[in-house]
């Protein structure tokens, strides 16, 4: 157990070092989210009426969740690239904790997402984001975002184990993540969508987390969105965590 913690810490530090030395990841956690905030704020801001509040206030919860969902791609691609380059294999010849390879990375991704959220809040405020909500509401909202981030990065890890090829992985995860984030309440109210699409949008995890965070930070009624978000994250983790651990173990002992 002591070894598992020590190894997780070592691989967490490795992921964090990678973040600072890799221009792609640095751009991914700073410039891209800022660009998304600005584009949506100014391109759609004038055209979309969300009723009751400004578009930028409405938008920010959506951008947070979208960025986190795409963050799962970073988890997936880094892990796939470690496998392609034989680094995971080298780890497998060491008497180390194998689960640390996955947990070290997902925890680092959690921290990375926290930083990105902070950057987006700052930029949001600069372009008119005026949230409400008590400190407790914000703490809960942030907690939900991080829980979602942790859950979704395990999905990323699982995908990398299933498709250990960086390019294929990029294509496939894009096809999954893009509809999940756009067919949701992230950027528009789902009531504007055709009935079938709306049914999907209303019942998928991105919408739940967006609704919960949005309601908490704009002092709107939260309904059951908090419970639903937590349920989704727990559900995702219950499936993805043991499944990744199982697949990873098999990868190492074919």
């Amino acid at each position: 157990m002591k070894n598992t913690f020590a190894d997780t810490w070592l691989l967490f530090k490795r992921s964090i070092t990678h973040t600072f030395r890799s221009p792609e990841i640095l751009v991914g956690i700073t410039i891209s989210p800022v660009m998304f905030v600005l584009l949506f704020r100014y391109v759609f801001g004038g055209a979309i009426d969300v009723g009751g509040t400004t578009y930028v206030n409405f938008l920010m919860a959506g951008i947070f969740v979208q960025t986190i969902a795409f963050g799962a791609l970073t988890t997936a691609i880094s892990l796939a690239s470690d496998m392609e380059k034989g680094i995971v294999e080298r780890f497998f010849t060491l008497p180390m904790s194998r689960s640390a390879i996955l947990t070290g990375r997902t925890i680092a991704d959690l921290l990375r997402n926290l930083f990105t959220i902070f950057v987006m809040i700052v930029v949001g405020v600069l372009v008119g984001y005026r949230p409400d909500g008590s400190l407790a509401d914000w703490a809960l909202a942030l907690g939900l975002l991080l829980f979602f981030s942790f859950a979704i990065s395990w999905v990323g890890a699982l995908m990398a184990l299933g498709i250990p090829n960086v390019e294929a992985l990029q294509q496939i995860s894009f096809i999954i993540i893009l509809p999940l984030t756009f067919a949701s309440s992230a950027f528009v109210q789902t009531s504007s969508m055709p009935a079938g699409l709306q049914a999907f949008a209303d019942h998928q995890p991105v919408t739940q987390v967006v609704n919960a965070v949005r309601a908490l930070t704009l002092e709107q009624p939260v309904g059951n969105s908090i419970t639903a978000s937590i349920a989704w994250c727990v559900g995702i983790l219950i499936v993805a965590l043991p499944l990744s651990a199982f697949v990873f173990k098999r990868v190492g002992s074919r």
């Binding site: 070592l10 070092t17 380059k85 680094i87 294999e89 080298r90 780890f91």
Partner: peptide
Amino acid sequence: TGQDTAVDELLTGRENLEMIGRLAR
């Protein structure tokens, strides 16, 4: 030492060795 080199390209040579050493207990 496998056929393909398995070094972490973003870490320095020293960091590579120290990390593997620590993971090797």
